[in-house]
Amino acid sequence: MTEILDGAAVAKITNAKTAERVSKLPKPVTLAVVYDPKNDGSRLYVNMKSKKAATVGIVTQDMPTDATATTESVISLIEKLNADEHITGILVQSPLAKGVKEREVFSAVAPHKDADGLGATVQGMLFGDALQDYTVAATPQGVMTLLQHYDIDIAGKSALVIGRSQLFGRPMFALLTNADATVTLAHRYTPELTLRTHLKAADIVVIGVGQPNFLKGSDLKEGAVVIDVGMNYVDGVAVGDVDFKSAQGVASYITPVPGGVGPMTIATLLENTVTLAENYQ
């Protein structure tokens, strides 16, 4: 029988712990959010994050970029936020305006304010499995929290990550590797036959490709743990990258869409923000 990994329930627990930590800090916790206001998805996500932040006691400052935004102008804004002692953490909401080099912008965020762990410095610490504290991209870290909450053993397991973005796939690969899984990273240039072969061998599958129902139950190894990071809309209905109905009964555990990884992403971002506040008071 397939067990549902309830991200909404785990996020609620995480948020309660975050609120308690915020209440113990001597100074306000403030998250600055840099985003492109012309992007409908970004406006929606920023609004959702602001509302959830308020429930745990974190103040947000929305920093919309203007219509003529360039890499240089966004980095200039980031540098001002880095220097502002009232700003605890900085989130750069992707995608930014066309032509803005996001990797350069991510890396302009000071490591001690990098709430989403996307800068080169903190990602280097992740890939080096550094001993000191550092932030990790919220979506893959949220996946790890979900796996840990359900006591899903990772060490020694065969894991397949499908998608290699800086926001999800690459840090997901590193986190699973650091947790002693044997990890394969697949992407758009992975031959289909190769991908299907890896799927049939994978104990854990984490997918985020933005293609509705990309995976079917018949693609999976019996008893696989399936983490669906995708969020797509088909006829106005939210669906993931996995055909949930056909995967049930094949997977041992699976995340729903919505209500799986999404709530964990926001909860982890807020958790990261309060960690920055605790470390750099």
Rank of each mutant, 00 (worst) to 15 (best):
Gln211Phe: 02
Pro212Cys: 03
Asn213Asp: 15
Asn213Pro: 13
Asn213Gln: 14
Asn213Thr: 11
Asn213Phe: 12
Phe214Pro: 05
Phe214Met: 07
Leu215Glu: 03
Lys216Tyr: 04
Lys216Leu: 12
Lys216Cys: 09
Lys216Gly: 08
Gly217Leu: 13
Gly217Glu: 12
Ser218Lys: 10
Ser218Asn: 08
Ser218Ala: 14
Ser218Pro: 01
Asp219Arg: 03
Leu220Pro: 13
Leu220Ser: 11
Leu220Met: 10
Leu220Val: 10
Lys221Cys: 02
Lys221Trp: 01
Glu222Gly: 05
Glu222Asp: 13
Glu222Pro: 01
Glu222Leu: 06
Gly223Ile: 11
Gly223Asn: 13
Gly223Leu: 12
Gly223Thr: 13
Ala224Tyr: 02
Ala224Leu: 06
Val225Phe: 03
Val225Asn: 03
Val225Glu: 04
Val226Pro: 00
Val226Ile: 05
Val226Asn: 00
Ile227Gln: 00
Ile227Leu: 09
Ile227Ala: 01
Ile227Trp: 00
Val229Leu: 11
Val229Asp: 04
Val229Lys: 01
Val229Gly: 05
Val229Trp: 02
Val229Ser: 07
Gly230Gln: 00
Gly230Lys: 00
Gly230His: 00
Met231Gln: 15
Asn232Tyr: 07
Asn232Ser: 10
Asn232Met: 05
Tyr233Arg: 15
Val234Met: 12
Asp235Met: 13
Gly236Lys: 09
Val237Leu: 13
Val237Ile: 15
Val237Trp: 09
Val237His: 13
Ala238Glu: 14
Ala238His: 12
Val239His: 08
Val239Lys: 08
Val239Asp: 04
Gly240Gln: 04
Gly240Val: 00
Gly240Asn: 04
Gly240Lys: 01
Asp241Val: 02
Asp241Met: 08
Asp241Gly: 06
Asp241Asn: 05
Asp241Arg: 01
Val242Trp: 02
Asp243Lys: 00
Phe244Pro: 05
Lys245Ile: 14
Ser246Ala: 04
Ser246His: 07
Ala247Pro: 10
Ala247Asn: 09
Ala247Glu: 09
Ala247His: 07
Ala247Trp: 05
Gln248Pro: 05
Val250Tyr: 15
Val250Gly: 14
Ala251Ile: 07
Ala251Trp: 03
Ala251Asp: 03
Ser252Gly: 06
Ser252Val: 09
Ser252Asn: 06
Ser252Thr: 11
Ile254Val: 13
Thr255Asn: 06
Thr255Cys: 07
Thr255Gln: 03
Pro256Gln: 12
Pro256Trp: 10
Val257His: 12
Val257Met: 12
